[in-house]
Simulated scan of single mutants.
Amino acid sequence: MGGGHHDTLLKDPAIEEWVWMRQNTHRYFKVNRRTAPTLIAMGLVVPAITFYFASATQGLTTIEPKTKKAWAEAYAERK
């Protein structure tokens, strides 16, 4: 910054290759014994646990406005 024409960006080939591989992971991904447990956990177990806790806690809390009237009723009375 501020060095005039002497500001050049040096590119490391190893970093450039890592960035390219990271952006193109879909080309090299394969389902095998190593990746299958992660796929099952993220695709089935995590959603199942989330659904279980969501359904188990449904209806346990009530969300009510702090005012006695809803904001729409209060707005209608002002007019």
Rank of each mutant, 00 (worst) to 15 (best):
F53P: 04
G43P: 08
T57W: 08
A54G: 12
T62M: 07
T35P: 00
R33H: 06
A56Y: 06
T50Q: 10
T57L: 14
V45T: 03
Y28T: 06
T57K: 13
K66D: 12
T25Q: 10
V31T: 04
A54W: 07
K30C: 07
E73A: 14
A41G: 07
S55E: 10
F51H: 10
P37S: 01
V31L: 04
R34L: 07
I49P: 05
A70W: 14
T50C: 07
T25C: 05
Q58S: 12
K30W: 09
Q58I: 09
S55F: 14
G59L: 11
G59F: 09
V31A: 01
K68D: 15
E64H: 07
Y75M: 13
A54S: 10
L39P: 01
T35H: 00
F29L: 02
A41S: 08
T67L: 03
L44F: 15
F29S: 01
L39I: 10
A76N: 11
E73M: 09
T61F: 15
A56R: 05
V31S: 00
T67F: 04
I63N: 00
I63K: 03
Y75G: 09
N32T: 01
T50V: 15
H26D: 02
T25V: 14
T50K: 11
G43T: 04
A48M: 09
K66A: 11
R33V: 04
I63G: 01
I40N: 06
A54K: 07
P65K: 09
Y52C: 04
P47W: 05
A48R: 01
A48H: 01
Y52D: 03
K69H: 11
A56P: 00
S55A: 11
A56C: 01
E73F: 12
S55G: 09
G59Y: 11
Q23E: 05
R34G: 00
V45E: 01
Q23P: 06
L44H: 13
T67W: 00
A72R: 15
Y75K: 15
A56K: 01
Y28M: 03
R34M: 06
N24D: 05
I49Y: 09
M42H: 09
I40H: 07
N24F: 01
P37K: 02
Q58P: 00
I63T: 01
R33C: 08
R33W: 12
T67I: 02
K66Y: 10
A76L: 15
S55L: 13
R34D: 09
Y52G: 03
T61C: 06
K30S: 06
I49V: 14
I49S: 11
M42A: 13
G43H: 04
T50Y: 06
Y28N: 03
L39C: 05
T67Q: 12
S55D: 14
A48W: 01
P47Y: 02
P37F: 02
Y28D: 02
F53D: 08
P47L: 03
L60V: 14
A54L: 13
F51R: 05
T67S: 07
R33P: 04
T50E: 10
T25I: 12
V31P: 00
I40W: 08
E73I: 04
N32K: 02
K30G: 04
K69T: 06
R34Q: 03
A74I: 06
K68Y: 08
T38W: 08
R33K: 11
Y75D: 12
A72I: 14
T35R: 00
F53G: 08
H26Q: 05
A36F: 03
K69P: 05
K68V: 14
